[in-house]
C-alpha cells in the first residue's frame, strides 16, 4: 500500500493587527491635514532659517500664558475624549456621554482663549503686519483654530448621536473617528506651541 504524501502546509504567520481607528474617511482627512500643516511648517522653518533674530525676538513678545493655556486645554480635551472612547468600549454609555461633554467644554476654552490672546496682541501692537515672525504665527495659529473649530462641530454632532444611543461597544466607529481627528489636531498644536511660545 502506497501512501500519498501531501505537501506540508506553509507555516501560518501570526496575524498582524491592521485596525483602522474610526474609519478610512477620517484618516484620509487627517493625512491631508498633516500634509497641509507640513507645508506650513516648511514655511516656518525656511523663514526661521532666513530671519533667526526676528524669530528670537518675536517669541518674547507673545503671551506665553495664552499659549500654555491653549496647550493644556488641547491636551485635557484630548484626554477626556479618549476616556469617552474607553467608556463606550465597555458599554458604559452614561460615562461616555459625561466624558464627551467634559471634552467639549474644555475644547470650547480654546477659541475663547484665542480671542483673549488676539485682544492682548492688538493691545500690545501685534498684528499680521508686525514682521515675518508674526505673519507666520497668525497664518499657522489661525489655520489650526479653523481645524479645531471643525473638531468642535464634530464633537457636537457625535455628542448628539451618543446621547440618542447611536454608539455602543459593538459600533463606536463615529466616536473613535472624531477622537482620532481631535488627537491629530492636538499633535499639531503640540508642535506649534514650542515653535512660537517656548523658543524665545
Amino acid at each position: 500500500m502506497t501512501a500519498a504524501t501531501l505537501p506540508a502546509e506553509p507555516p501560518t504567520c501570526p496575524e498582524i493587527p491592521r485596525r483602522i481607528p474610526g474609519n478610512k474617511g477620517i484618516w484620509a482627512g487627517i493625512t491631508c491635514e498633516f500634509v497641509e500643516f507640513g507645508v506650513l511648517f516648511a514655511v516656518y522653518f525656511i523663514a526661521r532659517a532666513h530671519f533667526p533674530q526676528a524669530f528670537h525676538d518675536g517669541a518674547q513678545r507673545l503671551s506665553v500664558t495664552a499659549g500654555t493655556a491653549i496647550t493644556l486645554l488641547m491636551i485635557t480635551s484630548s484626554y477626556f475624549i479618549a476616556c469617552s472612547v474607553n467608556a463606550i468600549r465597555q458599554d458604559k454609555h452614561r460615562q461616555a456621554v459625561i466624558w464627551l461633554v467634559a471634552g467639549l467644554i474644555v475644547a470650547l476654552g480654546y477659541p475663547l482663549t484665542k480671542v483673549l490672546e488676539i485682544d492682548w496682541n492688538l493691545a500690545h501692537g501685534i498684528n499680521g503686519e508686525s514682521g515675518i515672525f508674526f505673519t507666520v504665527y497668525y497664518y499657522l495659529t489661525f489655520t489650526h483654530l479653523v481645524h479645531a473649530t471643525w473638531g468642535i462641530l464634530g464633537i457636537l454632532w457625535v455628542l448628539a448621536r451618543l446621547s440618542f444611543r447611536g454608539y455602543s461597544s459593538a459600533d463606536y466607529a463615529g466616536l473613535e473617528a472624531l477622537a482620532s481627528y481631535w488627537h491629530a489636531t492636538d499633535i499639531i498644536w503640540l508642535v506649534i506651541f514650542p515653535l512660537f511660545y517656548v523658543l524665545a
Binding site: R18, R19, P21
Partner: peptide
Amino acid sequence: GVLVARCFIEAQDAHPFIARVLKTFIAV
C-alpha cells in the same frame, strides 16, 4: 507626539499606513 499617538490613538495597533503617517509627521 509619540505619547498622544500611542496612548490616545493606539497607533501601535493601527493599520501600518496610519502608523507610518503618524510616525513621519511626529518626527519631521
